[in-house]
Amino acid sequence: MKRTHLPLNALRVFDAAARHLSFTKAADELAVTPAAVGQQVRALEDVLGTVLFKRMTRNLELTPEAERALPALRAGFLEFEESVRILQDAQGSKVLTLAAPRDFTARWLTPRLAAYARDHDVRFVVTAADDGVDFTQANLDLAVTFGPVPDVEGLHGKQLGDAAMVVVGVPDADPERRIDHPGAGWPTGGSFALTVADAGLAIDAAVAGFGVARVPVLLAAANTGVVALGDPEPALAGYWLVAPTPQWRQAKVRALVEALTR
């Protein structure tokens, strides 16, 4: 018999009936009807090709075959229970591993992780994700990416804030002195007074009075050293929380995502 076709529910019913030697009492334990118990037992007997119970006038009696099989069956159920406990312990891990761009981690993510940790018994491991994320190579629970809607098979994403950009600088900044960085998306034309590696460094340069930077609204709102020098403009790229679809079933991942997106 193939392992994938094990009639586990019927075996559980058989175990209960064998312990009570009564379909009625087994039905009470399992919260079903005695007829349902009898049906499951008969179906199991058909699958196994052997009789499990001698039906007496007032009670049941195990057949020799059933007597021999029960110890191994009950040992198997104990192994199942241990497997479930191990899986539950893994879900209850106090460690969450994330990857995110360095500037995003420093300016937006870290303060929120600190606030979350104050109310939850959890420890974070955060790695850099400036060159993308490969879940097949990293032991990650969650990652933050910047770009358009994630379109990778097997990955699920949830957007953080709005996909919008805004020009920032000190109040008297010269709008002609542009600070560029990958993803800034400045309109064509014009020159740049400075080019840096990421939006975080662009904000630092703007705070220092070097010029104006075009950065994601989410980062701009987290920095008090600059002001918005115009209205936010919709953009194709934004910040996304991403993970392989099965990992979104983890309670610890769902709880953190809810806290970061509320």
Score class of each variant (00 low, 15 high):
residue 196 V to N: 02
residue 158 K to I: 15
residue 74 R to W: 00
residue 172 D to G: 03
residue 254 R to M: 08
residue 117 A to L: 03
residue 230 G to W: 04
residue 148 P to A: 15
residue 16 A to Q: 12
residue 202 A to P: 10
residue 139 N to Y: 01
residue 154 G to A: 10
residue 257 V to Y: 03
residue 90 A to M: 13
residue 192 F to S: 10
residue 4 T to Q: 14
residue 106 A to K: 06
residue 142 L to H: 06
residue 69 A to T: 04
residue 127 T to P: 00
residue 251 A to H: 10
residue 30 L to K: 09
residue 33 T to E: 09
residue 154 G to N: 06
residue 35 A to D: 05
residue 156 H to V: 15
residue 189 G to A: 08
residue 38 G to C: 07
residue 129 A to H: 02
residue 154 G to R: 05
residue 126 V to E: 02
residue 192 F to W: 02
residue 244 P to M: 05
residue 156 H to T: 15
residue 47 V to W: 03
residue 240 W to Y: 07
residue 62 L to R: 15
residue 150 P to Q: 09
residue 229 L to T: 05
residue 131 D to G: 05
residue 8 L to A: 14
residue 102 R to C: 04
residue 120 H to G: 04
residue 119 D to P: 00
residue 68 R to E: 15
residue 198 D to P: 02
residue 53 F to I: 11
residue 13 V to Q: 08
residue 147 G to S: 06
residue 215 V to F: 05
residue 49 G to W: 02
residue 245 T to D: 09
residue 50 T to E: 14
residue 11 L to A: 11
residue 159 Q to T: 09
residue 192 F to A: 11
residue 119 D to M: 03
residue 123 R to M: 10
residue 12 R to Q: 06
residue 23 F to W: 05
residue 223 N to T: 10
residue 84 V to F: 08
residue 203 I to T: 04
residue 110 T to I: 04
residue 219 L to H: 06
residue 174 D to Q: 06
residue 225 G to W: 01
residue 8 L to R: 08
residue 159 Q to G: 07
residue 23 F to R: 13
residue 29 E to V: 14
residue 179 I to Q: 07
residue 186 W to F: 05
residue 90 A to C: 06
residue 39 Q to F: 05
residue 116 Y to Q: 07
residue 29 E to D: 15
residue 231 D to C: 02
residue 111 P to D: 08
residue 260 L to V: 12
residue 250 Q to I: 03
residue 223 N to L: 01
residue 66 A to H: 02
residue 145 T to W: 00
residue 201 L to P: 00
residue 25 K to G: 00
residue 101 P to K: 01
